[in-house]
């Protein structure tokens, strides 16, 4: 007779404990196991969320503990949604999101496609490419600040080398037209390897037999790419877009380090704006409403996206 690990664990259970749990149903035992996790989730996630929603209807300010807290209804929401500055930060965030995701997916997939080919030094190149995402965003921000320095920065000199312009004649982080691209370039440099790794996982999950069958059918490489590689890697690509989308929607550290949200408000993303409202202006009620709006936006978009992702996976 063979004993499973569960049987062996049951045999080792002290008699006193065994007697106490003998009468418990499977459902009760399941609850005992999940209860600590549920309690933690409630304490760390759900309660703060409910509390934030409650505060969003008040004029509470955490730096004025002695002031009376008044119920202001939807006034905070109204002020946020009608504030042109908030919409400007939304626009800056949309620009940042769209371009970083587009570039990272295009470059990341291309790199993954190349790395997926067997060649000498493959592992070494993979390690080199992955290096930027191992760094702290604050370090990357600081590092790119130097690269973008008009007088000593390597970036300006590279541009000058190819275009012939004076390197000191333009400032990537000081010019309103260039600064939004400065943060896109730095983020793309840092996070493209992450997209590449996900795409690589997708490409390596495609069985060779499918390509072999296509070869038998005399399908060209181009046709194989569009009818096998892309459709089968698509769920992974979509997953990469989801991860990067959520991450970049809350982007803070890299951009603060690089531009501080400037020049002017050009690179003030919503997360930076929210932080200023919450922890510099200390408008707790207002910033709670702001946070709720952002949460609903991300949650809504992510839900729609996940449904689309599931449909692609089912195909």
């Amino acid at each position: 007779m063979t004993y499973s690990p569960i049987d062996r664990a049951a045999a080792k259970t002290p008699d006193g404990v065994a007697r106490r749990i003998r009468g418990l149903s499977d459902r009760t035992i399941a609850w005992i196991f999940v209860a600590p996790t549920i309690f933690l989730l409630l304490a760390v996630n759900i309660f703060p969320l409910i509390w934030t929603i409650r505060l969003s209807f008040t004029n509470f300010r955490v730096n004025r503990p002695n002031n009376a807290v008044e119920w202001v209804g939807l006034r905070n929401y109204e002020r946020i949604l009608t504030d042109p500055d908030v919409w400007n930060t939304m626009q800056a965030t949309a620009h940042f999101l769209i371009w970083t995701i587009t570039l990272q997916v295009l470059i990341g997939f291309t790199l993954a496609y190349l790395i997926n080919k067997k060649f000498r030094g493959n592992d070494l190149w993979t390690t080199i490419i992955v290096f930027p995402m191992m760094l702290s965003p604050a370090v990357v921000g600081n590092f790119w600040t130097f690269l973008y320095q008009p007088q000593i920065g390597l970036f300006n000199y590279v541009v000058a080398f190819f275009t012939g312009v004076d390197p000191a004649s333009f400032s990537m982080i000081g010019d309103v037209h260039l600064a939004p691209w400065a943060i896109v370039i730095a983020d793309t440099w840092m996070w493209t390897p992450f997209v590449m790794l996900i795409c690589l996982a997708g490409l390596r999950s495609i069985p060779d037999s499918i390509y072999e069958a296509a070869e038998c059918d005399r399908a060209s490489k181009w046709r194989q790419f569009w009818t096998i590689t892309i459709p089968m890697a698509l769920p992974f690509l979509m997953l990469a877009v989801l991860f990067r989308g959520i991450e970049n929607f809350k982007m803070f550290d890299l951009v603060v380090q690089l531009t501080g949200g400037g020049p002017g408000n050009t690179t003030t993303l919503t997360s930076i704006d929210l932080k200023r409202e919450a922890f510099e202006k200390w408008r707790t009620g207002y910033s709670s409403a702001y946070a709720v709006i952002l949460f609903v936006t991300v949650f809504g978009l992510a839900s729609i996206y996940v449904k689309a992702l599931n449909k692609v996976k089912e195909r």
Partner: peptide, 14 residues
């Protein structure tokens, strides 16, 4: 602003 435009180092925007 004029002083910033005509008399400060390039890139000194922050």
């Amino acid at each position: 602003k004029d002083l910033y435009d005509v008399g400060t180092p390039p890139g000194s925007s922050n």
